[in-house]
Write a protein that binds this DNA or RNA. Structure first.
Length: 321
DNA sequence: CGAGGTCAAGGGGTC
DNA sequence: GACCCCTTGACCTCG
């Protein structure tokens, strides 16, 4: 089984390379010259894209070909008081350069918008705002010359005191959103509301690939045995051009088991790999750890000592127990 | 110049 | 139903 590791949005090794610099709406309003404020937003966005490209070059240097792009590349892009701001034209060229680099080096990039993007609400305005953000992600992928299919992970949403109804609402809302956006999406089990079982159920209904978050499962589940549903999860990926992917992270401490640790618990990761061995040819594992790429490096270093691991390069290995 | 406060948002939990 | 907590990195203010 081929395993490839990736990490999220920013590096702890590359200095001054944030792809998520921002301007808050409060700051924006304080600027008297609105046009000057918009130009500043464009400068910040361009700087974020430059840093994004620097990160991808850093990844290439360390054989990392799986990466989650920041969803904060364009500050205030979806703010309702900036509807007149046509933010994409000044960014087209930079986005194209990023796309060329990604394609040339055969990298897998994707998005995970923050948890305020919610598709299962009965609130029409909230749904509308969420769709606007999703459209931005779609356009960014297009301008980065990526096929948007299965590149944007979301959670199921709120429980609203009636999870069954909340799941039905997701199915209903999903049916009325544009097909292009439907195809872009993936759903992931969360750590407080919708478990792996429930998320898998809705993914099967909607024919959307499921993203299994092992840490979320450990802290919140209806059915402890994730392995009993694993084959079904694999099946949700059958129409995808991309290898199955999942999220790995470890708990910070006993006090707050939901919080993410700096690094990955290698032993626990190996237990997981043993659990899925043989079910897929390839799996991409997104590391969600505070120490970002450093957590990836440390995990690879640990894995080198394992007899079940045959290293391919800086972020990939064969797992053969 | 570093520590601590603020910014954004919706959901969850508590009383 | 009022309140505060969760999450995140970046940015801002204060001493």
């Amino acid at each position: 089984m081929l395993v490839r590791l990736g990490y999220v949005a920013m590096s702890v090794h590359l200095q001054n390379a944030s792809p998520s610099q921002t301007m808050t709406f409060a700051q924006f309003k304080r600027t008297e010259d609105r046009n000057a404020a918009l130009r500043k937003l464009e400068r910040i966005s361009l700087s974020n894209l430059e840093n994004c490209l620097r990160l991808l070059k850093h990844n290439k240097a360390y054989d990392i070909s799986f990466f989650r792009l920041s969803s904060k590349l364009i500050p205030l892009a979806n703010h309702e008081e900036l509807l007149d701001w046509d933010y994409l034209p000044p960014l087209k060229q930079s986005l194209g350069v990023i796309g060329d680099f990604v394609n040339k080096n055969q990298m897998r990039v994707d998005f995970h918008p923050d948890h305020f993007v919610i598709l299962n609400s009965e609130d029409k305005d909230l749904l509308k705002a969420s769709l606007k953000t999703l459209r931005m992600h779609y356009q960014l992928l297009k301008l980065m010359k990526q096929n948007p299919e299965h590149r944007c992970v979301l959670h199921v949403g709120g429980g609203y005191n009636d999870k069954e109804k909340a799941l039905e609402q997701l199915i209903e809302n999903f049916s009325v959103i544009p097909t292009s956006l439907q195809k872009m999406l993936l759903f992931e089990n969360d750590d407080t509301t919708f478990t792996f079982d429930e998320t898998l159920f809705v993914c099967e209904k909607l024919d959307v690939p499921v993203v299994f978050d092992y840490h979320h499962h450990l802290v919140h589940h209806t059915n402890e045995s994730w392995t009993s549903n694993w084959e079904r999860a694999v099946k949700t990926w059958r129409h995808s051009n991309l290898p199955m992917k999942m999220h790995i992270s470890s708990q910070r401490d006993e006090k707050d088991i939901r919080a993410h640790a700096d690094y990955i618990d290698t032993k626990q990761f190996l237990e997981f790999l043993n659990g899925i061995n043989g079910s897929v040819d390839q799996i991409d594992c997104m590391i969600e750890a505070k120490k970002k790429d450093d957590a990836l490096f440390r995990l690879m270093k640990d894995l080198k000592m394992e007899s079940s691991v045959e290293i391919i390069n800086g972020s990939s290995f064969y797992f053969k127990p």
